[in-house]
Simulated scan of single mutants.
Amino acid sequence: MNTLPDPNETKPSAPDQLSWREGDMPYSEEFGDFYYSKTDGRSECRHVFLAGNDLPERFAGSNVFTIGELGFGTGLNFIETWSAWQMAAPEGARLEFHSFELHLLSRETMLRALSAWPDLAGRSQQLTDTWPQRPEGDIELEFVSGSKTVSLRIHHGQALLRLGEARLLADAWYLDGFSPARNPEMWSAELLGAVAQKTAPGGTAATYSAAGWVRRNLQAAGFAVEKRPGHVGKRDMSVGRLIG
């Protein structure tokens, strides 16, 4: 039976392969999942990734802090982290943010997605102004504010391959791939083992997922894992600290 198209839903864009749903929220057609929480992607970032990694408290005591992320998406996590780091980090500090992303969004798509938070417009504009119109390959950007510096490195391609090639030891990880049920490769034992190899001693990881097999894969990689209360609408999330 044929159905009429939803007048509130746009067709997938090319090359981003996403549509806009439920109040202009970006939705991946490939993975059948939203790019961030339908409740509030910004508050999810603060709850899961910042608080889950004990940030920004750790920023205050670090002259150089390195973050690794699986899944750059719209750049919301980066911008929210940049804002928190700018407020908490000491003078002369440097934030190094490495993100691994298979599908890079266009400049227009990122700007549209980030427009939901007008108070982030300054940094959103800085990011999108320097973002390639139709990005291909790795991206390296640097932002300077006073004596503080933020570097962004996007490793474009399959996460397992690119992670093996990357030169970093992350103090904290944001595990933010699409739903484990829809994108299991981003949560595999092999990939999380590679994450552990690129983590500084005592480094941490946080994810919105509390799936049993995800937690077991983190434990097998060498993380001590615990459940914490999840973001709005989710009972649990997972955090880990590299041991040994």
Results as ranks from 00 to 15, higher is better:
G75W: 08
L168M: 15
A51R: 15
D119N: 07
G75H: 14
G164N: 13
P90N: 03
L152Y: 12
L95G: 07
W117L: 04
Q125R: 15
I154F: 08
L114R: 14
L70I: 15
E91K: 12
T109K: 06
P90T: 01
F143S: 09
A60M: 01
R162V: 07
R94C: 03
E142L: 10
E91P: 01
A113R: 02
R94A: 04
M87D: 01
W85T: 05
E101K: 10
A89S: 14
R134T: 15
F78R: 06
R153S: 09
G164S: 10
G61R: 15
I79V: 11
M110E: 02
T149E: 07
I79D: 10
R134F: 13
A113Q: 06
S115H: 03
E96L: 10
M110P: 04
G73T: 11
A121G: 12
L102M: 08
R162T: 09
E108T: 15
G75D: 07
G122F: 12
Q126M: 14
E136M: 11
A113D: 01
M87K: 14
L160Y: 13
S99I: 01
T81H: 10
F78V: 09
F72V: 06
W131Y: 13
P118S: 10
T149M: 11
H156K: 14
L168I: 11
T74S: 11
W131I: 08
N53F: 04
P135H: 12
R107C: 05
P132L: 02
S62E: 06
G122M: 10
L127N: 01
L163T: 04
F65K: 01
I154H: 05
P132G: 02
L104R: 06
L111W: 13
E96I: 07
A51G: 03
L105M: 12
R167M: 01
S62R: 02
H156D: 10
G75L: 14
A89V: 05
R134Y: 15
P135E: 07
E136C: 14
A88C: 02
S83L: 13
L168T: 07
H155Q: 11
E136N: 12
P56A: 08
L141I: 12
F143E: 07
I139Q: 04
R162H: 13
L105S: 00
S83G: 00
F72E: 05
Q125A: 13
E165V: 02
S151E: 08
Q133Y: 01
H155Y: 11
G122S: 05
Q158D: 15
E136V: 15
F65M: 05
F78K: 07
V144Y: 03
S115P: 09
R134W: 14
G122L: 14
A113C: 13
N63I: 05
G157L: 11
P132M: 06
E108G: 09
L70D: 07
F65C: 07
S151Q: 13
S99N: 02
S83C: 12
L114W: 13
R167W: 06
A60L: 06
P90Q: 10
W117F: 03
L152K: 11
T74R: 09
I154N: 05
S147K: 15
T109N: 04
E142H: 14
E142S: 15
S124E: 02
R94K: 11
L160S: 14
S106D: 10
D54G: 08
H103T: 09
E165H: 07
A113E: 00
W131Q: 13
G122R: 08
P118F: 08
F59M: 02
E57N: 12
F59W: 10
T109P: 00
H155G: 03
L104Y: 04
L111A: 15
T128D: 00
A166H: 00
E142C: 12
